[in-house]
Design a protein around this nucleic acid. Structure first.
Lengths: 222, 222
DNA sequence: TACAATATTTAGGTAGACCTAAATTATGTT
DNA sequence: AACATAATTTAGGTCTACCTAAATATTGTA
């Protein structure tokens, strides 16, 4: 029952997990974009994953892909590795939160279960990575997330930043400069309905962010 | 001038380095055995490495392989990664000295220079790994090793164990049980010329080891 | 020095993960 | 409802790193 999952396959599963977390299927094109691979390559791989036994994905021509139970487990394993590694790199090697992604991206595929257990234990089994993202538990369940996208908040509402979903170094640095990091208290000052810009206050500073950014930040309303 | 060295190539170079450290060329068969690969596969890869520009190995049909300057640099880089990782795993994650090899074997190919620098600095740039093997310096020179194989010592001689060259968990555990680890003080009690067995004393215990083992242990004579 | 044993290489394939170009299916308008 | 556009798949390759079987060198020894 044990597959040997290649690095490529692990990457496909991880990305399918992320694309389907909203309940929709993952399209060939969307996957191709994320994986930096051509669309035909995705079709081929997805066909293979669907016909492997046990199947890792559910797939109907032209209908997009979803993960099977086995595929989801494997995806969560990779995501757990990734997020634990990010936390580990920040906490024990002094990496900045914007430089861990790339390193974790390569390490996630090669660490043993032993390594995983050891870093998790050494950190006291953290619930979130440095970007505030939830870390799947050791038995591979993704904890419930009760946060809302910052983009949904309106003037007068306040919240605490939970997580920032982005692998882009530049954006992360920019947000850090604004103080917009997990844990920060924010208040919405204004909303412009046409461009979906929000004016946000943190401490005494305030600034305006577009939907592009606010949709990628999750907050806990208070 | 920057090659992209695949994991396979890195493994070839590392093993060629080790096989040629005695000044001889590395034979196709010896490499095949170490890499767990067929002899024809080695021939093919070695031809490729010899004709790449810049060439990573020197190779003449039927004459075995040696590393070029570039190949040696690349090999030392991998070996530095490996040994730093072993030290890191033991020191910060509490791995036992006999379980680090396998983990380091996979991680060595994917860590960044940034990661390498950080763990080296965090450990204060250690000179040796947990097996006592010398770690190539940051500028990729292998420090001189003034130690002698234990197998060369004769009764009355004493020394301090420097390193144990073996990836085998069982042997390492066995030696640890005997107290034969880097740093241990030893004295030779007896030598049998026919089978090359040595009787060795550590603390109050003494035991007999065959050439197979004594040739893989390096000591500093005192 | 000749020849068997051993080491190495050549020849011809395979599997995985890609790619481009061309064909097909879906979709969104008008 | 028809058709252009976009999304997806099929067809046909490539490249890397393997493999086995067969051919060829090298070597040690009779």
């Amino acid at each position: 029952m044990e597959h040997t999952l290649t690095i490529s396959i692990q990457d496909y599963l991880k990305n399918i997990y992320e694309l389907t977390s909203n309940g929709e299927t993952a399209s060939t094109n969307a996957l191709a974009r994320r994986l930096n691979v051509s669309a035909p390559s995705v079709t081929g791989m997805v066909q293979k994953l669907a016909s492997s036994r046990p199947a890792l994905v559910e797939y109907q021509k032209h209908q997009g892909v979803t993960l099977t139970k086995e595929g989801k487990r494997a995806a969560l394993e990779v995501i757990r590795h990734h997020r634990l590694l990010e936390a580990w790199l920040v906490r024990t090697l002094g990496y900045a939160w914007d430089e861990v992604h790339e390193e974790a991206e390569r390490l996630e595929h090669v660490i043993s279960e032993n390594f995983e257990r050891r870093i998790a234990a050494a950190m006291g089994n953290p619930a979130r990575d440095p970007h505030g993202e939830l870390i799947p538990t050791a038995d591979l369940k993704m904890p419930l997330d009760d946060s809302t996208p910052l983009a949904m908040l309106r003037p007068k509402q306040t919240g605490i930043v939970q997580s920032v979903k982005s692998p882009e170094t530049e954006l992360l640095r920019y947000l850090e400069g604004l103080g917009l990091v997990p844990g920060a208290q924010i208040e919405i000052l204004a909303y412009s309905p046409f461009d979906h810009n929000l004016t946000i206050k943190i401490g005494r500073k305030s600034f305006v962010l577009g939907f592009n950014i606010t949709s990628r930040i999750l907050v806990e309303e208070i």
